[in-house]
Amino acid sequence: MKINTTRILLAAAMTAFTTTMASATTLEDVRAAGQLKCGIHEGLAGFAAPDANGKWQGLDVDICRAVASSVFGNSEAVEYIPVTGATRFSALASGEIDMLARTTTWTFSRDTDLKTEFVGVNFYDGQGFMVPASLGISSALELDGTTVCVNTGTTTELNLAEYFRANGMSYEPVPLETGAEAQQQFLSGSCDVFTGDASGLAANRATFPNPDEYVVLPEIISKEPLGPAVRHGDSEWEDIVRWSLNALITAEELGVTSENVEELASSVNKNAEINRLLGTEGDLGAMLGVEADWAKTIIMSVGNYGEVFERHVGVNTPIGLERGVNALWTQGGLLYSPPFR
């Protein structure tokens, strides 16, 4: 009996402790801090990189800026926290960052076991192969017996092994710690094949002294849906991040750009969804717990998804990616936002 009482008291004390810990929501914490703590890549072409003025730029960085626009109406209210591949999930779980936008692949185990909530996909990537054109290889199925440069400890390494085994081919891996090292080894001819995310391969190839001497093979051997993620268990905050991303996609679908958003918001449009998105009709902002013109602020400061894509990784950048699967669903791609209603 005595023991039981003690136990109950202990349990009560612990519950009280955990409740006090969880009392402040992420949104309240972010508002109190005055800026969003956004976990980004320490440096990846097109996704997160500091320019000459030390300002971070990239596809993932713009997601952070979009969320800051929703919460504060100010896309600059972000503290960028570079996190490594090894520390990103712990940084999110421990509250070091409020959200994670670091080219993170949405997988089953990360969603369930690691208690991370992925709010959507901001880039559909996949693993590909690059070879010197002189090898005369045109398909990944001809890679039998080659040496392959691959980064260690990544899903890339596992996908590679699975793909070669499934197709009954052999290969010799050259495991390397960093992308820079892998690129150097590949250029110096230590390996025949360089494998990695297709976006990364394109970015790397663009920097080679002679890009024309290398080809990226057409096969994509894995699905890498990269998306922003938040902590498990705070649905209000999750909603804000999810709909900030969806606002970018919907804006492109509705033809709202950073140039015409001011004009569209000042008049009543025939398309009611534009009005709802920009807050001139309905009260979607209030439902989300932010200002009515939240989506308008996002589009004014970072543009719609298409603009973001073209600015950082599109065909006119050195990375030079086509939209491909990252086009809207109406244009044969995979991007699809639930309706703003």
Partner: peptide
């Protein structure tokens, strides 16, 4: 400290290499 995401000189070189202008400089 580069392994915990602080940008020491080595970390900065990596960040600089990630920009479109300087990707490929080692």
């Amino acid at each position: 400290v580069v392994f915990i995401g602080l940008l020491d000189p080595i970390g900065v070189t990596r960040a600089i290499r990630a920009t479109p202008e300087w990707n490929g400089v080692y």
